[in-house]
Amino acid sequence: MLLEVAGLKKSFGSIVVADDLDLVVAPGEAVGIIGPNGAGKTTLFNLIAGGLAPTAGYFRFDGRDFTGVPLQGRCRAGIGRTHQIPQPFEKLTVFENLLVGAVYGRRKTEAAVAQSCGEILERLGLLKRANTLAGSLTLLERKRLEMARALATAPKLLLLDEIAGGLTEGECSELVATIREIRQTGVAILWIEHVVHALLAVIDRLVVLNFGRKIADGVPKQVMQLPEVHQIYMGIEA
């Protein structure tokens, strides 16, 4: 298994945001995560790729215990992530944003990563904006930059946090096509998303979280049929 999460617990005071979570992702697999607001989805990402320390439990990545590994070590080992609210380096150019990820995430020289950064920008449709300041990008472009920057670190596992939110139908299907392309290069994907139809177009397996607990995990179509999932999603998603 590429990623193994076991018995992961996190509470802020009396509020439990991750309760005994188990989750595995195989190399190259695409797993979707859905759940109502406050279900602990982003917290799970922060436990895996952010600086958040779990209250109990552990997670392994690529066969190594990763629970105490600092942020930069997680990235270098191959965990890339995007943020729900894009966090560009605004006074750097789009290309320089990617360079940071490529140079530090992959521990290479700037000259050695220029070609692959250019290719990632081309794939994500940002090539024309390569030498403009990231601060001047539109929201859609910022979301693309988040993904491009994560890809620049050459991840084995890519964590996508609500990347389709706020996009038009056309933009969304473009995004789905891009993510499918990324999958074909062998990158495993763990994707949190409210736009369920976009998710279902890409993933192999679907996990449902509610109040920090995993309530379903399996083949997407079957999971969506489960009565408890229906109940949660009544009024949120058709």
Binding site: Q72, C75, Q87, P88, E90, R106
Partner: peptide
């Protein structure tokens, strides 16, 4: 520009 994002990129 963004310290936490920089750490997340290695």
């Amino acid at each position: 520009d963004h310290e936490a994002a920089a750490a997340g990129l290695g």
